[in-house]
Amino acid sequence: MAVFMDLNVPFLPDRSDLRSVVETAAHLGFSTIALNYVFEPTAKKKQEIPTPTPINELIDQLPMVQGRSRPIRVLNRLTVLMSDASHFRPNAPEYRCFDLLAVQPTSEKLFHAACMVYDIDIICVPMTEKLPFFFKRAPINGAIDRGVVFEVSYSAAIRDSTMRRYTIANAVSLMESCKGKSVILSSAAQKALELRGPYDVTNLALLFGLSDGDAKEAVSSTCRAALLHAETRRTASGIIYTTRSQREAPQGSEDGRFESSHLYRRYRCLCCVAIELQWNKVMMSESNTPSGLYYWIVIYA
């Protein structure tokens, strides 16, 4: 069974609020959450893209996930609110600090571009207003083929009745076009009390027009697919991937090959991608330098 994830928890400047949200998420059984930084470019003045604060500076000790003996995993995500095509700068170095990259387009043209062209992981569908455009089948199919996912957040629906109508209407019209595939459900909860448990979210998705199976995938495996997509984005076209092991060089370890389980997981992720894309061979090598151990993973296309 795949683990549950909530890929949109807004970053709150107040530490104790943030802490209580993270603790509640762990208590409800979410294994991974993504702290969301929103960037809204305006035409008048140039703005700084926010930089993510490392999670160990925000919270001293991450809470344990309900039912598992592992602390919760916290990622960083950037959402760009786009009202103009110039707002998204591909290959901006600032984007590289984030684990996930999302855009929220406000016009049909931008939506089309986001689905077909931009190198992103998540497209947010606005939930707090009437949909400014209709969803067309072609760009949505393009997005599904590229592995980009659509996000529906439910906390606006919890807040008040008008938002609930917009959320359900927008979500249903999205599901009609994408047939329930590659959709993720996330909270966007400003307070700890706006989070909901994974099973409740799954059942809530029935109102959004998802079937049982699709709804469960929307909180688990589609989120994982989005994370894997993000990993390939961060590498050189998903072909070569280098990482530095956190520890010092290994000293006569027994298996020797994978020092940290973290690295091993990444290697396996990449292998999965390689199989999916029908690459022929995946090779992993390591080089020992004075500054630490480097692993090289080379995938022959």
Binding site: Y154, I158, N203, L207
Partner: peptide, 12 residues
Amino acid sequence: YKLLWSALPFIT
């Protein structure tokens, strides 16, 4: 029960 359950998340 599914219909009724889907209303439970809206309890604040």
